[in-house]
Design a protein around this nucleic acid. Structure first.
Lengths: 333, 333
DNA sequence: AATGATTTTGGAATCGATTCCAAAGCCCCG
DNA sequence: CGGGGCTTTGGAATCGATTCCAAAATCATT
């Protein structure tokens, strides 16, 4: 029992393929009686228009794709939810694919945009070099989220990572910390911006970083533990450590606690993202809330504009407001 | 600058479209000189075959899709990694889309299989009724993972949830627990199987459940806390509580600890999944390891068989071995 | 050099849905 | 009843890549 085609429906309904197509696409130029006959035939044959044929003719797919390294990041999963909701409202199907940081896999997925498998692309954390992102955005509909290449061609949505790191570092200083350390991720552009904000806040207070550690491989709970161990091995402990993510901060807190020290009394810890991990941690983490859901929504809006909008593409970045969330992993006042 | 077509490439290379297509598809029936000319033209025009045209003609897309409620579950993200790796090895592109438990969204995504946007579908946690899954699997290539409808037509991969719950409950009993409680998720088929295993282990030991609580909305950290509060309000505390997920167990541990009680001395806690949360928890959780990555791989293999295999489809379920991971949230010996 | 076998090529037909154009059908009004 | 305008319809052309068939080119052999 092969798939029914528009021809089969036309024959069954006793009309022409043109009429069937018109019914399918809600054209008003169809009589009620034809509409009914076609609807009946469609039901009878369990007909669905073949996507590839439709896409070929229409020259668009009504599908958009998001690429990220991982799926298990709370920020990404939340941003994708916003993206997906906005996409659905506009009649688009949204898909996501993890690249695992593998360039070849990423290329294969980006090719889906190049070969018209999807109409638009969201990049969360590209592995490819910046100039490739730029070249891609030059021709096709691409929007970056969280990690943004500062480019003419590409459009991006994120928080102001530098400012956010600045804000939370200032909070650490305000609560009395003088010897500050940082555990960051230099592999990510956002990580470098956060380092910058961290250093600016310090130098503005007349301080310098006591220690800055950067993960080499993954930036996760275990990395947090490992790097915290290095902090604990220092001759004189810092007062506070700013971590580039909640997950890493949680690892940090865990290692400190296991060593018999107390957070925040012996060593304050600050995270980033305000993911569920910040609340699961004991003590709960002071962190920066990223408006991930909204970032996703805004990203889709920008993508839609690029896909359908007039020639003049909107460019540059959009920064959404972040929020300092103060909890018990840092000292009071 | 419109997209180049196979016609353009043919003209530029000075050959026919047939030859271009043969080069694209690596047919041996092309002379070296033609091959070179075509390769040059492709590079010059930056040509990519249009997916929709190719898919239409070939009647397949080399794309597969996975559907799940959420993205942020560690089991799902890991299973999808296995699925994606296996897919890539076979030359398929794998995509994932969250449904948010919304039936309409799910239908729209399932339609991607019906209308040939993808060749196969993996279902992690369908929202649609069982008979719909079955009807779908009757006609098209569908494989279930984790949550499996026990059907003739559908093929599925999971662990033996009943047995796993039985095993971990027996461990609780072995370590001295007599008054056991459970916090589960009756909304999921796997949750119901786990409840069954829990009860079987109890009755085999001549015990009955002291308390069984089920989440009504989401099954997450906060739900764990909320339900743990109910346990703590009982006249006489249970010895141990089996939770249907690590995340919920973590919430449970947190609530118990905040109440000034100690895990496992006052109340032992067991989780499920062996996700990173099990290690982030203090004390770390005794739990059941699901071979999520392998489940994903096996699921793709099954899907591939359904997509390309001969008429006789493999049916039924495949159970992969789980593993009891003993940590500090349960008593020793 | 001719013949046959083999390799390589060109180009038309095809996949299925959409769209455009012309023709047919309908309605209304004088 | 005829004709101008409107609605509705049929069907061919189209989107771009693949594939099949026949023709052309090449090669080998005598």
């Amino acid at each position: 029992m092969a798939r029914a085609t528009v021809q089969d429906v036309a024959k069954t309904a006793g009309v022409s393929v043109g009429t069937v197509s018109r019914v399918l696409n809600g054209s008003p130029a169809v009589s009620a009686s034809s509409r009914e006959k076609v609807a009946g035939a469609i039901r009878q044959l369990n007909y669905r228009p073949l996507a590839s044929a439709r896409d070929l003719r229409r020259d668009r797919t009504m599908r958009v794709l998001a690429l990220s390294k991982n799926l298990d990041s709370p920020v990404i999963s939340e941003a994708f939810r916003g993206f997906g909701d906005a996409a659905a409202e506009a009649g688009y199907v949204s898909l996501i694919a993890p690249t695992s940081g593998d360039l070849e896999r990423e290329q294969q997925l980006v090719d889906m945009l190049r070969n018209g498998s999807v109409d638009g692309l969201i990049l969360f954390s590209p592995t490819m070099p910046d100039e490739d992102v730029e070249a891609l955005a030059e021709q096709l509909s691409v929007v970056q989220v969280c990690e943004i290449v500062d480019s003419e061609a590409a459009f991006g949505v994120s928080i102001d990572d530098r400012q956010a790191a600045y804000d939370i570092t200032r909070h650490l200083i305000r609560t009395g910390a003088r010897r500050l350390a940082m555990i960051g991720n230099q592999a990510a552009r956002s990580g470098r911006l956060r380092e910058q904000g961290f250093r600016e806040a310090l130098s503005q207070a007349g301080l310098t970083a006591e220690q800055t550690l950067f993960a080499t491989g993954t930036f996760d709970f275990h990395a947090g533990r490992r790097l915290a161990r290095e902090l604990l091995a220092m001759d004189r402990l810092p007062d506070a450590v700013f971590c580039g993510s909640d997950t890493v901060a949680a690892g940090c807190v865990r290692e400190i606690t296991d060593a018999g020290l107390r957070v925040p009394d012996d060593l304050a810890v600050a995270g980033f993202d305000d993911s569920i991990q910040a609340e699961m941690c004991v003590p709960e983490l002071t962190t920066i809330r990223q408006p991930a859901y909204d970032m996703g929504r805004v990203a889709f809006q920008a993508l839609l504009e690029r896909m359908t909008g007039p020639g003049a593409h909107r460019r540059g970045r959009t920064f959404l407001p972040h929020e300092l969330v103060i909890r018990d992993s840092t000292k009071i006042q």
